[in-house]
Amino acid sequence: MRSVLMLTAVLGLLAVFGPSLAPHDPTAIDIPNRLAPPGGVYPLGTDAIGRCVLSRLLHGASWSLGLAFLVSVIGLIAGTLIGLVAAMGGRFVDWIVMRATDSFLAFPDLVAAVVIAGVLGAGTGSLVFALTVTGWMRYARVARGIGLSFGSRGHVIQARLAGLSPVAIARWHYLPALAPSLVVVWTGMLARAILGISALGFLGFGVQPPTPEWGTMLLDARVHLRSTPLLMIWPGLAIVATVLAINLAGDALRDSLSPQERSA
């Protein structure tokens, strides 16, 4: 738990204060200094129209991380509710909900996200919608799985007999038991959201230029692969480092919660 809190704090600080560390305006154009190498006024050089790469990376952090937080938290809330409804609603409701979950799981989620974001028209709203619609199923599965095994426990039955409403039972009895597993799923989904946002950006269906975002920076850098390869190294490193850190924190958290399933 501590590693995830630390990581959340660091990424949160980066998302909030990253832009204020930027030395330049991320959209300021400086044509005479286009494709400048790192050093001098521009610590990481400039892109094809002379914008400061470091400033764009730092501002991009708040876009990538902020949107990934938003997407993964909406998915967490929606998926948990859906899973709890399936677990507490009886066999028929369970069947219906789980078949819907299967339908969404049966489809490769990035392909679905590309179709949804592309058809709705490029933009931040479509991006968030597309990644949320394709990102709630794992939470639902976990919530439903634990919830089902939980429904026949003594204290839950007692709570029901005592006349507690289903909402209160879900709040006070199911949620505390679900929380650790859901946090583990959340770390995985946060990493996926960052990859998804930058993949959609790279395909041109995500955050729109001139907004700095890591995936769109890679897309812009691709054209200058031969002349200025460094341009595509920076955003790639930023994505890999962030995703790797989140995954490692998630692994550590899972190991600390269930030592018998230790993976490494």
Binding site: F202, G236, V240
Partner: peptide, 8 residues
């Protein structure tokens, strides 16, 4: 490898 996106 799991953290490196295919496009990069």
């Amino acid at each position: 490898g799991a953290a490196i996106p295919a496009y990069w």
